[in-house]
């Protein structure tokens, strides 16, 4: 029943906030029980597109574990300038409370005087939910990841630079980067470094497992940087190792033959039972023989 309640709670909140609210009921009482958590984030992706993402969650003030997502809320994403807000796109929150748009790499952002891109995500609000707005200020940075074999050494080269208003490349300094590889569920960190003069190189380990074709995804990321925010770059190379040796399963139940103890146990059990059956049948035969003798001695033939 717990699950029903959970479902109902989620549905009730959604319905109250965005549908019945217009009929003028006092649903603000429901909304008042929740604190709205509104987060805005941007990630510059490997193909130089920029992901703008909002997370819109309601949190019960009394029970902090009770966090239903705000569903179907329209979020508008802007490139804000001193004079106007340029709409980049709109998206509605999904059933996890997330709304996102991807701005193409070719898009020309309007920068402020210091060279920052000012981004904002706005929710206009409803009768019951207050309007929400969050701003982010990032500088555009270009992160490059080169994978080269130099003198048979697998070398990872990470470069980062910005471009000024005149189109001149400026190497990024003192920027922390993380180099990781794509694992089955998440990324596995293999190196952490600070860029000097816009560059960092290191020797790639030779014992990292890849897929069956020895391919391996290598990532370099800048995470939560004060100026550049989140940036990710990705490359793929045949640098992984693949051990084709088939490991013998220790579980003999999967092997061609059953373990010996199983044959012995089943043999003893079944053998014992069937021997008793046969013994019983022999005893019945003896009973029959005794009966025939009895009949011959005591019952006159008619």
């Amino acid at each position: 029943m717990k699950y029903n309640f959970s479902n109902h709670r989620f549905t009730t909140l959604m319905v109250l906030l965005f549908f019945i609210s217009f009929t003028g009921f006092g649903q603000e009482n429901v909304a008042k029980k929740f604190k709205m958590l509104y987060k805005f984030n941007t990630i510059k992706q490997a193909d130089n597109t920029r992901l703008l993402e909002v997370s819109f969650i309601a949190r019960n003030k009394k029970n902090k574990k009770d966090k239903p997502p705000v569903f179907d809320a329209e979020i508008q994403f802007y490139n804000t300038t001193e004079t106007e807000d340029i709409l980049l796109g709109t998206a509605k929150t999904d059933d996890t409370g997330h709304a996102s748009i991807t701005v193409p790499a070719s898009h020309k952002y309007t920068l402020d005087a210091a060279g920052y891109i000012n981004l904002s995500a706005k929710f206009k609000g409803t009768d019951q939910l207050k309007r929400k707005s969050k701003k982010i200020q990032v500088k555009d940075i270009f992160l490059e990841l080169d994978l080269k074999e130099i003198d048979s050494v697998k070398t990872v080269i990470v470069k980062a630079f910005t471009i000024d208003s005149l189109g001149v490349k400026i190497k990024a300094n003192n920027v922390d980067v993380i180099i990781s590889i794509g694992a089955m569920i998440s990324k596995m960190k293999i190196e952490e470094a600070t860029l000097k003069n816009g560059l960092y190189t290191f020797e790639f380990p030779t014992d990292i497992p890849g897929n069956i074709a020895q391919n391996i995804d290598i990532y370099t990321t800048i995470e939560d940087h004060d100026e550049y925010g989140n940036v990710i770059q990705k490359s793929n190379e045949k640098w992984g190792v693949y051990d084709s040796k088939e490991l013998d399963s220790k579980n003999t139940l999967w092997s061609k033959y059953a373990p010996l103890w199983m044959y012995i146990l089943l043999g003893v059990l079944l053998g014992g039972i069937w021997i008793n059956f046969i013994y019983t049948l022999f005893q019945l035969k003896t009973i029959k023989k005794e009966g025939l003798t009895f009949e011959a001695e005591n019952i006159p033939k008619t």
Binding site: N276, T280, Q283, L284, I287, K288, G291, F294
Partner: peptide, 25 residues
């Protein structure tokens, strides 16, 4: 089906013995 059973002491004893074993089994 009676296989010549005549309730003789020997038959009774024999049948009782195998029935007891079978019931345990």
């Amino acid at each position: 089906l009676a296989i010549g059973y005549h309730h003789t002491p020997s038959q009774k004893k024999r049948l009782h013995k195998i029935t007891k074993t079978m019931s345990a089994m």
